[in-house]
Design a protein around this nucleic acid. Structure first.
Lengths: 184, 184
DNA sequence: GTTCTTTACCTCGGAGTCGATATATCTTGT
DNA sequence: ACAAGATATATCGACTCCGAGGTAAAGAAC
């Protein structure tokens, strides 16, 4: 998703792509050559991107990669109907968010944000005692577990706040677009 | 790490372990049977845990798992000197934090928190233009990317705040312990 | 009485990722 | 002239993890 997402902005070669993906998801976990290049080939075989050899501006020749219509469609499908992990796994969610603007319909964007919003509403119960009963933060003996739950709660509220504002904006824009189309 | 960490609290059987790991890391990504049971076997082979068959309280018989001294040592090694990913990947970091109290020396605990603190100090530069120059949040056209960076910044500050307080506490405790040992 | 669901454990194949390794090009320093 | 280092692409074996499937036991539903 990150490869197609970046290429949708403008054409890039593999090495550049590697650095950009590493900066985005990768300040978390850099992407390995052995992952990147086979994935590019896979996307090429699936006609999601085309390759043009160009002289390297600094050194060895580059393969400039460009996204195709097929690739754009694939990207939009991934964004419009993301797998569960992209909603629940923070790392994956942030990658999705970085490319959500490529899904051009505000209503569709709002729907994706709403899925995340709904997930964040379930406050995660992280720790249980021997009997399987949940332990509230104030009963936790470990200060690290206490902090973990505090941070988790605080960051969730921050994101929920942003999500609500954003969903509101998008729905207003979608509603306005409908009014215009209706001639209202 | 999560398996040994939970067993260090009290003995558990596989199924229970599965649910606890799923609640902790897994509200993010539940753990599959095909991952859990081979891993338990691997830890058993490495003498990190022992197994006792007990009648199931509800249905099929359980294998009660108990951590050994070898397992405790292994857990502490992982906690004391975590691989880079455990510092930089939020998911992994939260798992580590959930078991850091098993590392009993406050000075060692503080050192681990300091590694995370240092990582959070580098503000991640996420997006770049065609020329490779970093794009500041206010220049981003996508509201999602803007929000992404805002949330990222805000949650980092929350965690840094907690880390600083915690590291201070731990160092005071470590210092106090030294004074006591010195008879001061 | 038979099926369904939940609990509980286990294995195998496939997909994905990494780390090591190899190759080639161009610039810079010595 | 030569080596070193950054740029740039690619492959291969090893490892991890998941998902699908299978086994089994107990209680609940019909």
């Amino acid at each position: 998703m990150a490869i197609l997402g970046f290429l949708r902005d403008f054409p890039l070669h593999g090495y550049d792509l590697k650095n950009r993906v590493a900066s985005l998801a990768g300040h978390v976990r850099p992407i390995a050559d052995g992952t990147l290049y086979p994935t590019i080939k896979k996307l090429e075989d699936a006609q999601c991107l085309t390759r043009r050899t160009a002289p390297g501006s600094v050194a060895a020749p580059r393969h400039m990669l460009e996204i195709t219509q097929t690739g754009t469609d694939q990207l939009r499908r991934w964004l419009r109907d993301p797998e569960p992990g992209f909603i629940t796994d923070d790392n994956k969610w942030y990658v999705l968010l970085a490319f959500l603007h490529h899904l051009e319909n505000p209503r569709e964007q709002a729907l994706v944000l709403a899925r995340r919003r709904e997930f964040l509403d379930h406050p995660a119960q992280l720790f249980f005692d021997e009997q399987g009963a949940p332990i509230p933060p104030e009963r936790l003996e470990s200060p690290f577990r206490k902090g973990l739950m505090q941070i988790h709660r605080s960051t969730n509220l921050t994101e929920i706040d942003w999500l609500d504002r954003q969903i509101g904006d998008l729905n207003r824009r979608a509603g306005f677009a409908v009014h215009q189309r209706d001639g209202a």
